[in-house]
């Protein structure tokens, strides 16, 4: 065998190994998809087979029966409601704060910026009990408010990300706009916002995924079935004390992953860049 073809074989077998390992890694996800199309009795009797003996689409119908008399549509609606408001709140408050930190030299700005960087590292566990007491006092337990309102204060990580991005935009732009008589608010809305769209998309995408997947806050603040988000509903349906229709549960599980998957397909570039340049946890 000549040296060149030997090298080609090496490359080929390497590619094959990397592809093979990738399949092993996504196998659990494929298994989830395949189990959602199997009849519950088949899920576990033929657990290793990826192709169902019969495609049992009924799972996707019976799954929507939900639990405790509430359709799964309701849980999707709840999750969507919480997620959309959280994303909107985070984007508005974070871009505003970032603009002030990046562009306005106001007294105290360095101090508050340092405060923000400190909260970046703060484990949220230290905050939950007083926050819970606060929301309890406000009679907000078992409402969506505790899940939405804190988002309207923005997020430290996102503010930092946006500040970094805005610093890359030439300051001369601000000055020429001011000479032309453009005020701060107009400049922010008409000139800055369109320029930082990539950073805003990154913020929105990550906030969307985190809120959609969140389990801790809904577990803490929502305690009746009709308020449950998708995460809570899936956990409740998988409760070992209940008789679980696994086929139906897997069907709803697959649907619960669709929004995240859709966001990933649409904004893959922002996700990959967000993680590789700032270390945002995906």
């Amino acid at each position: 065998m000549s040296a060149i073809s030997k090298k080609r074989w090496g490359n080929l077998s390497l590619s094959a190994a990397v592809w093979g390992f990738a399949i092993v890694m996504i196998y659990p996800l494929l298994w989830l998809l395949s189990s959602s199309l199997k009849h519950t009795t088949e899920v576990y009797s033929q657990a290793h087979k990826l192709i169902p003996a019969h495609f049992y689409w009924e799972n996707y119908v019976s799954g929507f029966k939900g639990f405790a008399g509430h359709s799964f549509f309701l849980f999707f609606q709840n999750s969507l409601y919480v997620t959309i408001f959280s994303v909107v709140g985070t984007v508005i408050a974070s871009t505003m704060a970032a603009y002030a930190f990046a562009r306005i030299r106001f007294p105290g700005s360095t101090f508050w910026f340092a405060c923000m960087m400190l909260t970046l590292m703060l484990p949220s566990e230290v905050l939950i009990i007083p926050q819970y007491m606060l929301f309890n006092k406000l009679n907000w337990i078992n409402t969506f408010w505790p899940l939405i309102v804190p988002s309207f204060a923005g997020g430290a990580f996102f503010i930092f990300l946006l500040v970094q991005f805005m610093r890359g935009i030439p300051v001369e732009l601000d000055e020429s706009a001011r000479i032309d008589g453009c005020g701060r608010i107009l400049f922010f809305a008409k000139i800055m916002l369109p320029l930082i769209v990539p950073a805003i998309v990154t913020t929105a995408v990550f906030k969307f995924i985190w809120t959609w997947d969140d389990y801790f806050a809904p577990l803490l603040y929502l305690n009746s079935a009709e308020m449950a988000t998708v995460s809570l509903a899936i956990k409740s349906m998988a409760d070992p004390t209940m008789e679980t229709d696994w086929g139906a549960l897997f069907a709803m599980s697959v649907l619960s992953l669709v929004p995240v998957m859709a966001v990933f397909i649409a904004f893959q570039r922002y996700i990959v860049e967000g993680i590789s340049t700032t270390g945002l946890k995906g």
Binding site: P28, S35, D213, S253, S256, L257, V272
Partner: peptide, 30 residues
């Protein structure tokens, strides 16, 4: 490949995938 290897992380935070993990390694799991 990069996307494929990233998929478990993208999905892994969700309750659905955690519940699935429990069944995958359950007594009658895959």
């Amino acid at each position: 490949l990069r996307s494929l290897y990233y998929l478990p992380t993208l999905m892994g935070g969700s309750v659905a995938v955690i519940v699935m993990w429990g069944q995958l390694f359950g007594i009658n799991g895959a």
